[in-house]
Every structure is written in C-alpha cells, then in structure tokens.
Simulated assay, not measured.
Amino acid sequence: MARRNHTTELGCIACDDLSELGAGKEGWLVNNPNLLTALDTHSIALANRSLVLILHWSEGSDPVGNRVKIVPDLSPIEAEYISAIEWLVFDDIKVLALGTSCGYLLIYSLRGDLIHKQIVSPGKILRLRVRDTKRDLTQDASSEEVCVVMSGVIARFDGSDIQNMLQRWFRERHSQFWDERESENSTDTFERLPYQLWNVSKYGSCVDAAITGLMPPPLLELQLLLLLGSQVSVIIVQSLLELML
C-alpha cells in the first residue's frame, strides 16, 4: 500500500523581503545554518544573523501587508549576532524573544518595538525554550517559564514576571502620556527581570536543555534535561528556595 502524507496548508508567506534571508537560492530554507525559525499559530519569524522578518497570515490575507522587519541594534565591536529566536505567548499577549551571541535577551512586540533588553550571562545564547500549559499549536498558550540555554549556564525566567512586565509596557504604550515617555525608551530604562542561573559546565559542553518540571515539596527541585554533546543527561538542580531552607 502506498504511503500517504497528510498535510494542511496554513497560509502563504511569499514576499520580496524573503530574498534578504536567501530565498530564491536552492536549499535556502533547509541548508542555511544561519537561518533561525519560530512558528506560531498564525505567524512565523525568520532570522539571520542581523535581521528578523515576521510574517502573519490568516485565511484570505495578503502576506505582503502582514510583515514586520526587525533590525536589532547589535554591537559591531563584539561582532554580535542573533543566535536564538522564540515566540512568547501569555494569554492575549504575543511577543518575540531573541537571544544574541553576547548573551543578551531581547523582546520585541509584533510591531517591531523593542520592549525589553537584558544581559543574561556573557556568552552565546544557544536556545530559548518555553514550557507552556497548553501543548496544542492551534490554541493560545500561557507560558509558565522561559529557559535560556548557554554553553555553560542555564537561566530560568518565571513566566509571571515576564507577563507582568509586558502588561505594564502595553498599558504605558497605549496611554495618553506615551508620546512624552517614548524618548525615554533606552537600554538604561529597561527594568531587570529576576531569574535563576545554574552553572552546568561541570557536566560538559551543553548544546541544548529544557526544564521538565518542578518537583513537589519538600524537595522543591527543578529538573533539567541537558543535551551534552552526544549524550542526554537528566540533572536535578537545587532551587534557590531549597538552599534557603
């Protein structure tokens, strides 16, 4: 019996801006190690080392009129580049998170506004992982936590802290005083999000990781799944709360 492939068309993203990411060349979407992608329900984000293109689609929509181009302010001295990309979804708020080769976490709105910029740790951010309460791609997801993966350290951001920061930003963005505050939007005015940081370099060079869950009291430990080169290890990492007990 012949093998059947069942696929569903989600939408069309064809536009001239894709040429800046290599579209038109053979294998540009598969064989390009510098191309990063993040897919959401009705959006896709494509990024190379210095540019991000967000494309939205819905039934009958024109992708040309639903695209946003983001050019982050990266350090030319450090030869900084985009190294990770992921969607963050909190109920009705959806933003795009970027990680850079210098260890910065950047968060952008769907319009391309820089909402947040924060150094996590010196070094290249390899992955951004989000653990959601809803697993179905067709549904809106409320993120519980964000995991920032680097070669020697793992950082964990609580989703509620990010969500509260985003809600404050959007309230201010739509307030009548925004025009006066817009000039203050610099790296010096970004609030610092709290996060937990673990040094995992003793286990080897980490290439990927994910937080799999929080163990119930009295252990209060975070369980991390680390991908170390050619082997996968499950590591139990003590939380800050347990260390205080």
Rank of each mutant, 00 (worst) to 15 (best):
G24F: 02
Y104A: 02
H42G: 03
I125R: 09
A45T: 08
E182M: 08
V200W: 09
N31F: 12
I54K: 08
R171Y: 00
A155K: 12
R192L: 15
N32S: 15
N185W: 07
L98N: 03
G204R: 06
I211W: 15
E221H: 08
V64D: 06
L74R: 01
S75M: 03
L193Y: 07
S160N: 12
R4V: 13
P216F: 00
L193H: 10
A97V: 02
L227A: 06
E26A: 14
F190N: 12
G159P: 04
S186C: 09
E145Y: 10
I125V: 15
Q163H: 14
L10E: 12
S75Y: 02
R171G: 00
E26S: 14
M215P: 01
E184T: 05
D92H: 09
I82W: 06
S151C: 10
S175Q: 02
T37L: 12
L137S: 11
D208M: 04
A2V: 05
A209Q: 04
N164L: 07
V153Q: 14
L110K: 14
Y195L: 11
T187A: 13
L35V: 13
L227H: 03
T133F: 06
S230Q: 11
L18S: 05
T37W: 01
L214P: 00
E242P: 00
E9Y: 13
S101W: 01
S19L: 03
D73M: 09
R111G: 12
S75H: 02
I235W: 04
H6P: 00
C147L: 08
E9R: 14
G123K: 08
K117N: 07
W87F: 15
R127H: 13
Y108M: 04
V30W: 05
Y81P: 01
G229C: 01
M244K: 11
L106Y: 03
G229K: 01
G229L: 02
K25Q: 15
G152I: 00
